[in-house]
């Protein structure tokens, strides 16, 4: 039994099966991310006026690392180019060039994920501190002479944990105050980068930049993690086609080329999601 049009195009639709399949799948993906983006808009619109952290539930601005985000945007867009080049190489029958471009694409994909995890870690080790006297700070924490561990999700502190582990005092290095327009450098210069001892009894709220802290972090981590998962799965599939899966090139080059086209379409979609994500979450 053979299923028709697995790689040859059906004359009246002009498409092979997998191409129809991937476009349908992408349609459903658009609805998936569309729902998350809509949720982002709704949560942001209904947030009270004022800016976090001064306003507890206000929407934060400028929290995310824009240079890193820009870098990642460039990385992903480049990978979209290289994946097209890989496909074009196959069309011209150059399997070696195909593999080179696939390796480049994979490097971009894992580079993106590496940078993203650095970005995440920056958030997990960053704290919001509210004192009972009404002061609000963001900054970095030192407990018992140690910064919270790198890459250890279990090492995230909050007031409950301080109480439970009977920590009487923490060292807190506040971030420099946000530069106001025109006096950026002056503010930086006047700020002292020293840790300050803060007693537990003075603290009314201590929370890292993690999802439960604020809906901004909740939606930021949810969307970017889901997107990161797509990048990861896409990279796995491409790694398969670049190495063991490329055996098919010898038996059925046309079908193999089609497979790369389909993977490429998925990869462009993943790229496109980021192109929306970056301005919406990082810049606006």
């Amino acid at each position: 039994m053979e299923i028709p049009y697995t790689y040859k195009a059906r004359p009246d639709t002009g498409l092979y099966n997998a191409k129809v399949g991937i476009w349908l799948f992408l349609a459903s993906e658009i609805m998936l991310f569309g729902a998350l983006f809509s949720s982002y808009i709704l949560l942001r619109v209904q947030a009270p006026d004022g800016v976090w952290p001064e306003m507890r539930l206000g929407w934060p601005h400028g929290l995310l690392n824009i240079p890193i985000g820009t870098f990642n945007t460039v990385v992903l867009i480049s990978s979209s180019v290289t994946v097209v080049m890989a496909w074009a190489s196959l069309k011209m029958g150059k399997i070696a060039a195909f593999r080179r471009y696939m390796i480049l694409t994979l490097m971009c994909a894992f580079g993106f994920l590496g940078v993203k995890s650095y970005d995440y870690n920056e958030k997990f080790t960053h704290y919001e501190l509210r004192l009972k006297n009404g002061e609000v700070h963001t900054g970095h924490l030192e407990v018992n002479g140690k910064h919270p561990g790198f890459w250890s999700f279990a090492d995230i502190w909050n007031l409950d944990r301080l109480t439970k582990e009977k920590v009487a005092e923490v060292q807190f290095t506040a971030d420099p105050p946000k530069p106001k327009a025109g006096e950026a450098h002056a503010a930086e210069a006047g700020h002292e980068h020293v840790a300050k001892a803060i007693k537990r009894d003075e603290i009314s709220r201590l929370e890292a930049f993690i999802p439960r802290n604020h809906n901004f972090f909740a939606i930021y981590f949810t969307i970017t993690a889901l997107h990161g998962l797509h990048v990861f799965v896409g990279a796995l599939v491409m790694a398969y086609f670049a190495f063991p899966g490329s055996r098919m090139w010898r038996t059925n080059p046309e079908q193999f080329t089609n497979r790369i086209e389909v993977v490429g379409l998925f990869w462009h979609f993943v790229d496109l999601v980021w192109i929306f994500l970056f301005p919406v979450v990082y810049l606006l």
Partner: peptide, 19 residues
């Protein structure tokens, strides 16, 4: 898919304490 997104978000609410 929107329910899938919603399920993920409610799971975040239930397991990771988001709101």
């Amino acid at each position: 898919p929107p329910l899938e997104a919603a399920s993920v978000m409610q799971l975040m609410d239930n397991l990771f304490g988001t709101s």
